[in-house]
Design a protein around this nucleic acid. Structure first.
Lengths: 237, 237
DNA sequence: TAGATTGTTAATCGATTAACAATC
DNA sequence: TAGATTGTTAATCGATTAACAATC
């Protein structure tokens, strides 16, 4: 039996980014290093300083900083305070959005606690779970049934959600959230999301990084036997 | 004042990968979809099936599967059971390593709970924190002082650690772990790591994905005023 | 057989790195 | 001034996509 379709096909979801996700991943590291230097009384820095310290090409850093709106001066480099202010603002640390958390498992709880420590600009103001245990709480917030979500989305004007349910449920819950009026969805986990238009979706699979570590650990003792020797057809030129 | 060096510079750490991290991030999504199809009684699939469903180019999927050691047959595609077995084995789900968790904050706790649910092949067998609260526990495990770590690394033959302390401490703790005999380190967070040779390091910053979502949310209302108009020098041809 | 699909090579695309005129 | 550093263009590199002979 060949594979049947089982629902609408997943749109390719091209992402028109004003800044690449790679750059976005580096900016906080720059901020961390700049803060360390500030503590040491440093007042200005160059891309070479940052590059040497972080093991990156200075050109890339210059592009990252430019993309974040920072401006330096030839010869003088960047003013450290000004640069920090620009990056911090760009990263949204000077603004906070409210969000619902869906999924009260260990990872969801951990993220909620981590977000509560600030710095990411997202505050969890409601927690939901497909199978809430009665009386269960995440921090100060009670864990509510999914059925309560649409009403609260409307009443509290929350438009952002963190989705951390198990992969099997991800697709269905994402659709529910979209229908309820959520317009920005941060999906944590490897589940498949097909939320349709009208909702921004970003997805991260934390364990992908761990898998890669384990893969590199295994590189010494290859597990895969060599593939059977097939004669390739001749190259064309 | 220009930026002074403040410690050994961070090596570039080139990563010789047998498979790209991008591929590694996709494989579990294939697994998730294949498991859904298996439940529906599907017995064989093609790259086109997967590509249509997941919004990817079939060629990329074919390369991913080949990199994981899977083999299909022209016209017939891949046997679903065999493919699942190959991928599952490749992802290491049929093997479990023991690891120490360093950092008992919300994120560390969340990860420990998430890892305990299985599937990632890592089992936390000891928890440490730079500032443990006495009597504190993560699951069944007591939270120990960092000073206890070197002895337990030696005694328990644990070689892998999950590092989830705050960014300011990351560099120092990573060095301590390397000195204690840890040879594989999964760093969760944006902290700067400079662990030197002899230790494999993989790092992930979960919040990078969230930042990107927020960036895309803002795309409608640009925050950055246009840069001052500078005449660029003429192109060369 | 004819047609669908793999495994592989070639082309394209985007991100990183290199080069360099302008600037302070 | 001379030299260091930015902002920008050009070159390189790696990953994705396209093309296609071999295969069942």
């Amino acid at each position: 039996m060949a594979a049947p379709p089982d629902g609408p096909s997943l749109a390719a979801m091209p992402i028109p980014a004003s800044i690449g996700i790679r750059s976005l991943g580096r900016l906080p590291r720059y901020v961390a290093q700049l803060e360390r230097w500030r503590e040491q009384g440093v007042t200005r820095i160059s891309c070479t300083d940052l590059g040497d310290r972080l093991g990156h090409d200075p050109s890339m850093i210059r592009k990252d900083l430019a993309a974040a709106g920072a401006q330096g001066r030839p010869r003088a480099g960047y003013d450290l305070e000004g640069l920090l202010a620009t990056l911090t603002s760009f990263l949204g640390r000077d603004r906070t959005d409210e969000a619902f958390l869906v999924g009260a498992g260990p990872l969801g709880r951990g993220l909620a606690g981590h977000l509560a420590e600030g710095g990411a600009g997202l505050r969890v103001v409601g927690v939901f779970d497909p199978e809430p245990r009665s009386g269960d709480r995440v921090g100060d917030l009670p864990v509510l049934e999914m059925a309560a979500l649409p009403g609260l989305v409307a009443r509290m004007h929350v438009r952002t959600a963190v989705l951390a349910v198990d992969p099997q449920r991800t697709a269905a819950v994402a659709r529910d959230l979209s229908a309820a009026g959520i317009t920005a969805l941060w999906v944590v986990g490897p589940g498949i999301v097909d939320a349709g238009p009208g909702i921004l979706v970003e997805q991260v699979d934390v364990l992908a990084s761990l898998r890669r570590l384990r893969e590199r650990m295994d590189d010494a003792r290859p597990r895969r036997e060599p593939r059977p020797d097939r004669t390739p057809w001749p190259r064309r030129r």
